[in-house]
Design a protein around this nucleic acid. Structure first.
Lengths: 160, 160
DNA sequence: GCTCCCATACTCGGATAATAACTGTCCGAGTATGGAAGG
DNA sequence: CCTTCCATACTCGGACAGTTATTATCCGAGTATGGGAGC
C-alpha cells in the first residue's frame, strides 16, 4: 500500500506556484526545479487542473497557476486529486460467500471490520483536510525565510 | 493507493480462528470458507505467522491457529504484517535537488510537508492500533449471536 | 508611423510503451497418522 | 494382545507465471507571439 510519488511532486509544485506571485509556470520549469521527468509531472498537474486546484493555459506565456489561494487548498484536496477518492481499504464483501451470506445485503454497511477500517481512514482524511497549504507555506517561511525569494529566482531562471 | 485485498482475508480469517476454539484450521478450509484461492490465502497466512500473529504446523492435523488471544491482536498488527511497516507516503527528499539543497541533510526530518503527511498517517495508525480483534469479535457476536456456532460448524464440515 | 496578418514557436492534453507491484499457481520438504508386521 | 516400524497422505513453505496498476515517454491540437507587409 504505497502512495504514488506524484503526490509529493504535486504538493511541492503547488507551494512553488504559491511563491511565484500569480505568475504561470510551465510543467517543464516546475519539473526542472527538482530534476523530475517533465512529461510525467505534467500528467499530475493535469489532474490538479481537472480538480480545479490549478488552472492551465496553453501556448507561449502559458503554463499552470493556482486556481485558488493556498488558504483554500488542503492536503486532502491534493491527495484526492492525484490518488482518487476511493478508500485504501476496499471491502470486497466476502461475507456474501460466508455462512448465511445473502447476495442482496450490502455488507459494506453491516461488516464490523469494514466499519472499523473506515473509521481509521476517516481519521487520516480528517488530519489531511485540517492542514491547508497556506499553513505549510507559513511554517516553511518561518523556518527558512529565504525560501520565497530563492524559489521565485529559480523558477524565473530555469530553462530560460 | 490501494490496500491489498489480502488484508481483508487475513482479518476475517483471524476472527474465524478465534471462533474455532483453539483448533487448527488449514489454509484450504479457511479459503473455502469464503471461496477464496487457497494457495494465495496461504501466502497471507504465512505472513501472519512470520509476524507471530498465527502459529503454523505442517502435516496431518496441522494448519494455522492463533498465536495469541484476540485481545492482543490489533488491526494495525494485521495490516503491518500483510502490507509492511513502511508509510504510504514516502518522502523521496526531492528538496535535495531544489535551491540550496544539500546531499548531507536528511530532508525526511526537515521537510514540513513530510511532517504533515506523517502526522496524518500516525492518526490512522493510532485508530488501527486502538481496535483489537477481540472488540470486533464481541461486536459481531452482539449483532449476530449465531456467528460463533455457524463459523465453527462450517470450518469443521468444509473439505471433508 | 500605424494596423493587420500570418508564420512560428511554445504549451497543454491525451494516447502510447516500459516497468514494477500485486495476484494467482505450482511443487517440494517435513510431519503425524494409521495399519501391518513381529514379539 | 501389545509394541515397533514404515509407507502414506497431508500440511506448510517458498519458488515460479499471469495480470493489473504505476511510471515514463511521445506526438498532435490549439494559442499567444512577433516580425513583416500593406495602408
Amino acid at each position: 500500500m504505497q502512495m504514488g510519488e506524484g503526490v509529493e511532486w504535486a504538493l511541492h509544485s503547488c507551494l512553488n506556484l504559491g511563491w511565484n506571485e500569480g505568475e504561470a509556470a510551465t510543467a517543464a520549469r516546475l519539473a526542472a526545479f527538482y530534476d523530475l521527468p517533465a512529461a510525467y509531472l505534467n500528467k499530475q498537474l493535469q489532474a490538479l487542473a481537472r480538480a480545479g486546484i490549478l488552472t492551465s493555459a496553453p501556448g507561449p506565456r502559458g503554463g499552470f497557476r493556482l486556481g485558488r489561494p493556498l488558504e483554500k487548498i488542503t492536503l486532502l484536496d491534493v491527495v484526492v486529486a492525484i490518488e482518487g477518492a476511493e478508500d485504501a481499504f476496499r471491502c470486497r464483501q466476502i461475507l456474501k460467500d460466508g455462512p448465511g451470506g445473502s447476495t442482496e445485503v450490502d455488507y459494506r454497511e453491516t461488516c464490523v471490520l469494514n466499519g472499523a477500517m473506515r473509521r481509521a481512514e476517516l481519521a487520516w482524511r480528517r488530519e489531511l483536510a485540517a492542514q491547508t497549504l497556506a499553513e505549510i507555506r507559513d511554517t516553511v517561511e518561518r523556518t527558512f525565510p529565504g525560501t520565497p525569494e530563492h524559489t521565485r529566482e529559480r523558477l524565473s531562471t530555469l530553462r530560460r
